[in-house]
Every structure is written in C-alpha cells, then in structure tokens.
Amino acid sequence: MSVLEGKELRIIGFLCNWCSYGGADTAGVGRFTQPTDLRIIKLPCTGRINPLFVVRAFLNGADGVLVSGCHPRDCHYTAGNFYARRRLEVLRSLLPVMGIEPARFEYTWVSASEGQRWRTVVQKFTEQIHGLGPIPAFKSGTCLEACLGTAI
C-alpha cells in the first residue's frame, strides 16, 4: 500500500534506543503483521524528547505522534522517562488548545522483549488515528505554497 493511494496516514513514532526500538525490532523479528503508517525516529531516551518535537511534527502535517520508551524504573539512564512523563503530560493540555485532537498524541512504555505489546500498541494507535482521519490543514494553504506565492 503506498502513501499516494491516500489510505495511509502519517504517524510519527519517537522511540527510545534501549527499550521500545528494541521492542519494535522484536516485533519485526517475530514477523508480526502490523499497520505500516508508523515512521520511527530513534532517540537515545524519552528524556531526550522536547515536547516541541511533537508540536513541530503536528504542524508539519503528521496525523499522529506516538512516543514510546522504557517502563518506569527501567530507564537506561535511570530517570529519563520519569522527566519525559511529566513533560508529555503537560504537553497533552497544550494540543487541544491549539486545535489538535488530543487523541492524536499518545505515549507509552514498551520494553525490548515486548514484541507482542508493541504490535498491540501500533495496531490500536493506528486504528485510533484512522478513526480521526487526516489532521486539519491550514486554510491559507501550505508553507510551500506561501513560499511559491512570494517567489512568483
């Protein structure tokens, strides 16, 4: 299925290197079938996530953003995910004020051995985003169109 057919949406996944990226790999090695809407960006830790990564992704047209890291108390750097949890919970309140459906954003914890859990998360989240459909676009068109407008 290609993006051009319009059946696929753009979901960005921010995954920590040590647990969730491994978990996604485990799901792949186990040959679990999963939806293909998710594009993964690997980060050293969920503590690396600036909430603005998520805002920038949405404003650049992502239809959903998923953050996944090590389970609490399992962080490779001891406490990164605890800080991330606070930041992401705070971010959760900003999205609806900006007009972005809060259900387009989720965060969760998946360990490297939990391939099955990873599949469940991806399936459920993708279904959730498909339920919401594509993210609303700016009425004034895209940034590219604005640039072309000034150039011509």
């Binding site: 404003l59 700016f138 895209t142 604005a146 000034t150």
Partner: peptide, 12 residues
C-alpha cells in the same frame, strides 16, 4: 516563511 504555521509554532 510568512505563514500562520510558523507563528503558531513560535507561540507554542
């Protein structure tokens, strides 16, 4: 770019 997207990004 002079587009509401970038201005909104700055406010966020």
């Amino acid at each position: 770019t002079d587009h509401p997207r970038e201005k909104l990004m700055f406010q966020a």
